[in-house]
Amino acid sequence: MMSKSFFRSNYQTFTVDSGQVSITPKGSLSSSSNVGFVDKRQYLLKDTGQPIDEKYLSNFAAPIPEVGGASLNELIQKNLVELKVKELCDQITYEGCCDQTLYNDNSCGLFSSNEAFCTSTAFGDGVYGLFVDSDQEGFVVDLCSYFLGDIGLAEPEDLLDMLEWIEKSHVVDEIGTLKVSGALEIGDPVYSDSEERVCLNVKPGEYKIEILWPSEDAMREDRQYIVRARRVKG
């Protein structure tokens, strides 16, 4: 269990514009290595194995002359195509982050030898919160804070309520272990400048990544969740 000895400076907020949040080593997600989104989906005709032209992935309702004018939507409904996902990017880039949020069954995942993590957000774009344990043994990325409508630092009494909420949350998934060797950056991977993400100094070691749901209603909605990282090995 994480300590409740938090201070106002232990809570920070960051803005999300691409509907996802990454946890990466400081300076690794630089503009020089950042690349655009790459669609990894590939639809193959079941009877011939031929791929559907990728241009139709931007409009699933468009007629495809090569298959008699049927749309991709119609082919999917008739179970005539098979979806395959191309090899995912394992580098700490925007592409690598998108691959985890779009093609991972959990909409999140560890990559780059477990040195990076990316997750989709609960409410898409908006402002989210980051809590840091006072003894630097863990932290929580609160993907529900946008629901509170708070774009500034929360008041101390609100923080205490949020911490109690986190402690009572249900652990649904244990994603794996994040390897931390130095300072981390947390925020939207779409940004090219590291200054637009939150820099976090925690103790080096291995941190267990858990997905928490704050309530039964949130679990049913399958959207509102919290990411908690706790140090398990140094």
Rank of each mutant, 00 (worst) to 15 (best):
Q136D: 15
Y128M: 02
V67W: 03
I151Q: 13
L110Q: 02
D173G: 05
S145C: 06
L75G: 14
P65Q: 06
Q100R: 08
D133F: 09
N114G: 12
F139K: 00
V140F: 07
W165Q: 05
D158M: 06
L184P: 00
K84G: 11
C89F: 00
S112H: 15
K78S: 14
F117I: 05
D105P: 14
L153N: 08
I76W: 04
D99R: 06
A183Q: 09
D135H: 09
P156Y: 11
F139P: 05
K179R: 14
A154C: 11
G149L: 00
Y94R: 09
I151N: 12
V81Y: 01
F131S: 02
L163N: 04
N73R: 05
L88Y: 04
K179E: 01
S112E: 15
I166C: 13
N59S: 13
G149A: 01
F60P: 12
E95N: 13
Q91K: 15
S71N: 01
V140Y: 04
C144I: 08
L178D: 05
D135L: 03
T177I: 15
V85N: 07
A116S: 11
I166M: 12
L153E: 02
Q136P: 10
V127E: 00
L57Y: 12
D99G: 09
G129S: 12
L163A: 04
L184F: 06
L83C: 07
G149M: 12
A70C: 06
S71R: 04
G126D: 00
T119F: 02
K78R: 14
D158F: 14
E174H: 10
T119N: 13
V140T: 04
F147W: 10
I92T: 07
E82K: 13
E185P: 01
E66T: 11
G149D: 09
S145Y: 04
V81H: 00
S107Q: 01
E115G: 09
S120I: 04
V132P: 00
G68H: 08
L80N: 05
T177S: 15
L57T: 01
A116W: 06
D161N: 02
G126M: 11
V132K: 01
G129Q: 06
V132C: 07
I76P: 05
F131W: 09
I175L: 10
Y128V: 02
A122M: 11
H170N: 14
P65W: 12
A183S: 14
V172P: 02
A183G: 14
L143V: 12
A61H: 01
Q77C: 10
S107N: 15
G126I: 09
S112G: 07
Y56T: 04
E164D: 14
N59M: 03
A183I: 03
E66D: 07
N73T: 09
V127F: 01
C118W: 01
L102Q: 03
F60N: 06
A61V: 10
T119M: 08
S112L: 06
I175K: 00
D133L: 11
Y103F: 07
N79K: 03
A70R: 11
S169W: 01
D150I: 15
Y128W: 08
E155Q: 11
Y103L: 13
S181F: 01
E115T: 08
V171G: 14
F123V: 08
F117W: 10
E95T: 15
V81P: 00
Q91S: 10
A116Y: 05
I76S: 13
A122I: 03
V141Q: 08
L57M: 10
